[in-house]
Amino acid sequence: MEILLQTHNLTKKYGGFTALNEVSLNLNQGDIYGLVGRNGAGKTTFFKCVMGLAKASGGEIEINGSKSGLDKSRRKIGFMISPAFFPYLNPRQNLKYLCRIKGVKAKGEIDRLLELVGLKGVKKPFKAFSLGMKQRLGIASALLGNPPVIILDEPINGLDPQGIADIRALIKKENNENGTTFIVSSHILSELDLVATRFGFIEQGNLVEQITHTDLHEHTKKSLIVDVDDGQIAAAVLKAKLGVEELTLRDNRLILDTHLDQPDAIAKALVQEGVALYRLAPQETTLEEYFMKLIGGGKHA
């Protein structure tokens, strides 16, 4: 799989404060990469360094396999770090301005984007926009010229539920239809979970983990915890009576990923065979719990 963007030990320091600490992240073609972290964890700083808006204190950035000529390579990356536009221009004029700067000449591009983000026909100037409209225009500007890679920093900030769903659908559509690769940051993991295919967890400037969506859900799936006096016998009983083929046995604790809806049958089978049942309870690690476990704290992601 082709790596479109890679950082090698990327570090950014502001005086004595380390905003990014040797972050090595790779973005594969076709990814919707969710960069998750609390406010101030280093997500925006990471994007700033990647886009050349802040000078890295250390490490390297590689775009399309090249560490040199980054200014030129960056022209192929669309981004929205914070939606900033000229207040006196309307959305069409603001996008036209950006088209000219970026050298985008495709006819109908502005209409396509305005329709895509639901701003077609909006004539009022940017200064009269709501936060949600600003976010939408920011996303349109990131999509300008069909860049192969798009960076979106907190794109759902300030959006209503419908707006969030729209942005999610838009990202999926661009990813599916045009093969656009996204790196999207948010501190709302549950939202990213609905769209991302890979995740990176960042905390206090450190990239704590990179994980695929599938692996993340392996870690967070529901299970049944069964504590008994003899795990071996209990496992045999459940296999014989209920057909439980797959379970994890840790000492005298059984962890079942199947038969989640049959706790009564499990209890009955074990008790009937004389197994002492100490505990039978469902367990689920939520995405938030997983994240908090990763960062080693009890603060919200």
Binding site: M51, G52, L53, K72, A84
Partner: peptide, 18 residues
């Protein structure tokens, strides 16, 4: 001044304009 007031300079630099 307009670029600074509207915070547009990062966009321009992010587009690869030096």
């Amino acid at each position: 001044s307009d670029d600074l007031n509207s915070k547009n300079l990062p966009t321009v630099i992010g587009y690869g304009i030096t």
